[in-house]
Amino acid sequence: MMTPIIKINNLKKSYENGNIKALNGINLEIEKGDFVSIIGQSGSGKTTLLNMIGALDIADEGSIEVSGYNLNKMKNLNKFRSIEVGFIFQLHNLIPNLSSVENIEIPMYIHNYSSKERRKRALELLDLVGLKDKAETKPTKLSGGERQRVAIARALVNKPSIILADEPTGSLDSKTSKNILDLLIDLHEKENVTLIIVTHDLNIAKLANREIEVLDGQIIDSKFQGN
């Protein structure tokens, strides 16, 4: 029996003075190294759940423990984010005036790297996502798929144990989507990172070992699937 990397118990989160119940009692355990997809209608609470796991927000009620950190009680959430998780968003959210390699360096400033070490590590990651020759290119000169690759490299640069991807292929065509997913799955397998993907695409959801469906802030279905 493996120990869960994520343990969530009766987690609740509301917005607008309690009028919007984004999460309404979530119970969830995710094993280390797993690949999980989260599906559900728009507004069902998928992003909110992902944000909770990544400590971008604090719960109103319930408990959440990730990689052994109790996120309800933790003070330096930014520290946790910088070590444990890597985010990938639907929009790449790269900094437009910085080159690919400089964008990948961004998460490393909070650690004690020298300039040289930062550059070296960023180039390694760029190589890993197959964009070695685009190191000095700015995001505006990259294709959508290439931008998302840079964003993936940025998410991985601090060696996180969990990757949280919120509709990472939401704005890409199906062929590019497939490439990006192959890359994510490949990295998940090679580096043994836990991968959680929020998606609207049921075909993508099926690729995961486990599929979770959210509705009105609650988990209504959770099935393990072989692949």
């Binding site: 984010r81 890597g86 985010f87 400033y109 909070i110 940025r154």
Partner: peptide, 14 residues
Amino acid sequence: EIGVLKAVGWSRTD
């Protein structure tokens, strides 16, 4: 962008 910086671990002070 500031949201992204926070997501990748930057603190308030950073």
